[in-house]
Design a protein around this nucleic acid. Structure first.
Lengths: 250, 250
DNA sequence: CGTTAAGTTGACACGACTCAAAGGCGGTGG
DNA sequence: CCACCGCCTTTGAGTCGTGTCAACTTAACG
């Protein structure tokens, strides 16, 4: 066993390990430690609050299955979703350093989560420098994604924003083995999508139909198929480099 | 000299030290080390590229004076500003870990910058655990701010967005001693502001005038005065907790 | 089946964009 | 010191993307 990260193994059912392997971050020892931490997971239904704004939980949560989100509620009751948490994504890393959370997180579908205590996190990062580095990597990719979303909300129209989101999700889900070549389970309602894209659900519905008419997507029964990934990418000038997926796919 | 952070000293002209002191992070030793790093600064004019998308600089930059921004260019030529860098703000912390930058940074006014090499950063974080922690803190507050902006672009109208931005900047600048009670130097053109707020410069102009007519702000010669901070805050339901300024002001 | 949440549709309103032109401020050079 | 020039700000008129409200249809589930 070496201290240098290995080439990723062909397959791993743990989405966090898959993701970090994709970035060539882990050693065998790191992988074993992560697997150990994930032995006890927990199933929760859709709509479960993972993190509540204003509270100071020190725990970190790892999504093993399902989709969750970061969100903020405005005083008028509107909701803005500021990030989607897919299998392999962590949330709550800020807790220990910042104290009170300034935003919330909740599940958008039934999810399998691992709850990791601050102690375990500290232990993990102290014994496994690669994992500490991986957390930095995770944070930074998150930040880059946030900036991409911000760019979209500021400068892209509804259709382009939606196309861009689908392109992003396809890649992120493929990395963790949760998407086929051009399709994946998509549990969000159109209302949820509206809160991601900064639109109303009525308008989201219209945009979805436009994409259907253009024969770019099929979206039905919580499953999306992208009929022409290339054309969809062109439509929104999708450039995946912000996801830092290092070569292999693109 | 202790390892535990001290209560902040009354005054420090170094904006980074002021900011971190505000969060009660540093010891005397940490402060001295940071001051040493900042001994060699560099003046650059407005429009200077600090970080270019796609390039892999490992350097970190600290703004001592002036304003800069993170931005992305869309294929159609539009620009989205995804963050404002004020005195005391760092940029480029991602370089060493992620490699190629997925966004750019540039100065929006004449600036004084400190260029810090990866070696110095590594040295600093290894010898001063509080500074390492401070970088995490910085990253996480950045992330929280990004989420707040995303919320605004998604769910607030132009006027509210602008009011919110001014409230945020007032606080952030006060922390580093670059703002009076209710006013500060604001070097951005209305075009720059438009790229921050996701509007056009024409519409920004109209919103500025609405705020003027409501006697909420005076904006003239690159200087802004907020005539009624409370009312401005009410207008946009400003809640500063995302900035994690820990008590003192608010 | 009955009930409820989600998706769909239409008519209308409004915020923000576009294009285009005019006015102001700050620098520069004659 | 004034005339000029470029960049920024301001204004108007018309258009378009998106929001609102409200009704109706379809899917999901016990």
């Amino acid at each position: 066993m070496t201290d240098r990260p290995d080439v990723a193994p062909v397959d791993d059912s743990n989405p966090l390990i898959r993701k970090l392997d994709h970035a060539r971050i882990l050693t065998d020892g790191d992988r074993a430690a992560l697997r150990e931490v994930c032995r006890h997971s927990r199933a929760v239904e859709a709509g479960w609050d993972v993190i509540k704004e204003g509270e100071g939980s020190q725990n970190v949560y790892l999504v093993l299955d399902g989709m969750a989100c970061h969100y903020k509620l405005l005083s008028e009751g509107a909701r803005a979703i500021t990030g989607l948490l897919l299998p392999g994504d962590l949330c709550g890393l800020h807790g220990a350093i910042l104290g009170k959370a300034s935003h919330s997180a909740a599940t958008l579908s039934a999810c399998t989560l691992v709850e990791i205590s601050e102690t375990v996190i500290n232990d993990l990062t102290q014994k496994h420098p690669n994992i500490a580095r991986a957390f930095w990597w995770e944070m930074l990719v998150n930040e880059a994604t946030l900036r991409e979303w911000l760019t979209g909300l500021g400068r892209r129209d509804g259709m382009t924003r939606m196309a861009h989101l689908f392109c992003e999700l396809l890649l992120r889900l493929q990395v963790v083995g949760r998407a086929e070549d051009n399709s994946f389970a998509f549990p969000l309602t159109q209302g949820d999508l509206a809160d991601v894209l900064g639109l109303t659900s009525v308008h989201v519905n219209r945009v979805v139909q436009d994409l259907r008419k253009a024969e770019l997507i099929v979206l039905d029964r919580r499953w999306i198929t992208m009929l022409d990934v290339d054309r969809l990418r062109q439509l929104c000038s999708f450039d995946p480099s912000y996801l830092h997926l290092s070569g292999r796919m693109m």
